[in-house]
């Protein structure tokens, strides 16, 4: 099913439990072997209280959140994110999104600009904008 974007539409929130498994699986799937994403002891030595989610995983989750909503034919065109408070194990990140603009895309598609935010127990983990192409 395809959801037709309209400016002002709010996407239903998505809660992501930030497990140690998700952090490590995301880091490995993105081929990011920085120890702060899988080795809690090494993370503490570097001043972080625990392992934390890498930016590629956050990027992947933000992309998934938007395409989940707009349906199987939705195509990501741009994803721009900024990270704030880290995603530590045991926390929950709630992604929310709002369509802030809609324009005509190529080949009779619609391009929607979606503002996305991911909040966790510490504050804003991620803020960003996603451009997604949706067939009409």
């Amino acid at each position: 099913m395809t959801t037709v974007p309209r400016t002002g539409d709010a996407l239903p929130p998505l809660e992501i439990p930030v497990t140690r498994t998700l952090i490590v699986a995301g880091a490995v799937a993105s081929r990011d072997y920085q120890d702060v994403h899988h080795d809690a002891e090494a993370a503490r030595e570097k001043g972080s209280p625990d392992v934390f989610m890498n930016i590629l995983t956050t990027n992947g989750l933000v992309g998934r959140y938007v395409t989940d909503h707009f349906g199987p034919r939705a195509v990501l065109r741009k994803v721009a994110i900024r990270l704030g408070a880290p995603n530590y194990p045991g926390d929950t990140m709630t992604l929310t999104g709002t369509v802030t603009g809609v324009t005509d895309g190529p080949d009779g598609t619609t391009l929607a600009l979606v503002r996305v935010a991911g909040a966790n127990g510490l504050g804003h983990h991620v803020t960003g904008t996603v451009t997604v192409e949706v067939p009409r």
Partner: peptide, 14 residues
């Protein structure tokens, strides 16, 4: 650095 226990508190407990 922040304490791990503090950082890992779920949203409603903060």
């Amino acid at each position: 650095p922040a304490k791990p226990a503090e950082a890992a508190k779920p949203a409603e407990a903060v």
